[in-house]
Design a protein around this nucleic acid. Structure first.
Lengths: 213, 213
DNA sequence: GAGGGTAGCGAACGAATGTTCGCATGTCGA
DNA sequence: TCGACATGCGAACATTCGTTCGCTACCCTC
């Protein structure tokens, strides 16, 4: 009889996922702790899956017979919330740029300082429409992904798939203004029939790195 | 007979140091591993020191009787190069501020992204003399400590013990200009007899965090 | 020198842990 | 239907590991 376990994610993926979470927290789990986490009551069941995962190269065993020695093969640099903020693309601070996503690089800044939780990414800013807000072309905009922002907050907005960084202001029912923060740039006014507009996220931080020049 | 152990650092400090190193690497050690690391051949010896350290509040035991459960009380935020940049004080972007150092806080940004090596600290910017360079009051200036900078680079400069953030320019023999980057601020010109001037470091990055507002 | 405190050792015990073995159940294709 | 296969269980077994106990040695102070 197959035991009544939470359906959906396969057992082996659950184990890998649990090991990832443990790697984030610091202490690797024991075999029985893994069993508790994924719903396997016998350490033998866990152990067999661990061996299989090892053959697949997804996990490795640090010591042989030592306690808490099973761990993820690679620290999974795609992991968010552990150390890096992924740079998922570029964003305009002038004319909207078409490519808003497409993971490119990693910014060595833990999101903890910018947002305690949630999905935080970085976008490289191109353009000068926000220079008066201290956001220059080449800066990294730290964006927390969220579907809505409040009036006056700086938002990464997607207009017909093109992304731009502006101050968000709802001026009326279905009417939105996207305000630049620099001289020489016009306010973008959006109403009905202005195309598809969606908030990508809210600006929670800015990071800039100077080279040797 | 006291065994021949490496003299110098007391055993207890060695243990704490070893636990710190393990915390960095990820896996907490077993009692016997600690013994091997610090030169204690009996787990009993290690265990007694662990209990003493626990009473002193320097370490804590996560689980009681579980393996690998001894760890450092606090992750020692003073550590540099591992995760945080220390915020060592405030710096003026307007009128010089007297307090340049005095460790206050930690910015959750690893220096790796800003400088591969060296002593990197953060200073909280106060004032608006560098706003045209995208450095606003309240930002964190990421400073790599170095005694000299080149013309045109932004430097944290100490004038008679007062710190300020400006563009550094040597205008002649013994003559220095400190240029603001904002309207309404005057260039500070320094020559012989202008007091003691020293470069605190070079600006290698800027970080800004927005709150909920 | 006596005595207390500190710090080390080895031995031992019990619990935790990794690992193996045999068995049962469900799936899938021949 | 039958057998190979995957997966789970419980029961061991062998280490590992945390912890305790008694002992010895050194360093003090009195």
């Amino acid at each position: 009889m197959t035991p009544s376990r939470a359906a959906g994610e396969p057992t082996r993926d659950q184990i890998v996922s649990f090991l990832e979470r443990c790697a984030d927290r610091g202490v690797p789990p024991t075999v029985r702790e893994i069993g508790d986490a994924v719903g396997l009551r016998s350490p033998a069941s866990v152990h067999r899956q661990l061996r299989t995962l090892e053959e697949d190269g997804r996990i490795i065993c640090d010591g042989d017979g030592r306690s808490r020695s099973w761990r993820i093969t690679k620290p999974k640099s795609r992991r968010r919330g552990g150390g890096m903020i992924p740079v998922v693309g570029r964003i305009a601070a002038g004319e909207p740029i078409d490519s808003l996503e497409g993971e490119e690089d990693f910014l060595p800044i833990p999101p903890n300082g910018f947002a305690s939780s949630g999905d935080v990414v970085a976008l490289r800013v191109e353009g000068n429409s926000m220079t008066d807000a201290g956001i220059l072309s080449g800066d990294y905009a730290i964006i927390r992904r969220q579907p809505e922002v409040e009036n006056g907050q700086v938002a990464a907005v997607s207009i017909d798939g093109q992304g731009t960084l502006k101050v968000w202001r709802r001026t009326g029912k279905g009417k939105i203004s996207l305000e630049p923060r620099a001289r020489g740039f016009e306010v973008i006014r959006l109403g009905r029939g202005s195309g598809e507009v969606s908030v990508f996220g809210r600006l929670v931080g800015v990071a800039r790195m100077y080279g040797e020049g």
